[in-house]
């Protein structure tokens, strides 16, 4: 059973590497397919153990559905809201800022979910993750407009919906 799982793991990473290679080169000539397959086999055999532990997770269609929903929502709604807010602050004559480093607590277990939440927070202008304490499950976030110092309220303001999606995708 475990050997079947490791074969599936290698195969999934092979698909990922080959897809990236094909998209990057943008061609399906015989030469590109042969080099792509060779490179992907080497990469997948060496790195599959590091990249995924449970090969059944990437095959779950519900996770992919949440990933696509999250991507669309994130790139249209959340990014636009945060960008407009910070652009207003930059172009305002007085550059109004109200910054603080606040402490909030996340509630995710896998490394991928934590990284997704932290990257989502840092990728929205106005919030940068300064430090992560994994034993206390705490994010220390530099927030350009600290509306509150309370951990729970700050979480609701900044990343509650990111966490909801990240847990459904990766946990």
């Amino acid at each position: 059973m475990s050997s079947l799982k490791s074969i599936l793991r290698v195969f999934l990473i092979f698909l990922l590497a080959f897809a990236i290679y094909t998209i990057y080169t943008g061609s399906l000539t015989g030469y590109d397919i042969v080099t792509g397959v060779l490179v992907s086999i080497v990469v997948s055999v060496v790195f599959s153990g590091m990249i995924i532990k449970n090969p059944l997770k990437p095959l779950n269609a519900i996770r992919w559905f949440y990933l696509i929903t999250y991507a669309i929502l994130y790139f249209t709604y959340y990014e636009t809201k945060a960008h407009v807010d910070v652009i207003k602050r930059i172009l305002h004559p007085k550059t109004p800022v109200n910054p603080a480093i606040i402490e909030t607590y996340y509630n995710a277990n896998s490394d991928y979910a934590i990284t997704t939440i932290a990257n989502s927070i840092t990728n929205t202008p106005g919030t940068v993750v300064v430090e992560i304490d994994e034993t206390r499950k705490a994010f220390y976030i530099h927030w350009i407009d600290a509306k509150t110092l309370d951990p729970l309220e700050a979480k609701r303001e900044i990343f509650e919906s990111f966490e909801k999606f990240a847990r459904r995708i990766f946990d």
């Binding site: 109200n98 910054p99 603080a100 480093i101 606040i102 402490e103 932290a118 993750v129 300064v130 110092l149």
Partner: peptide, 23 residues
């Protein structure tokens, strides 16, 4: 994140203006 963490750990830059710094 690496820049912010490094600068905060090395105490190179102060958080200014500042409401609070919990770290």
């Amino acid at each position: 994140h690496a820049l912010a963490r490094g600068v905060h750990k090395a105490k190179v830059a102060r958080v200014k203006p500042c409401i609070a710094d919990k770290l």
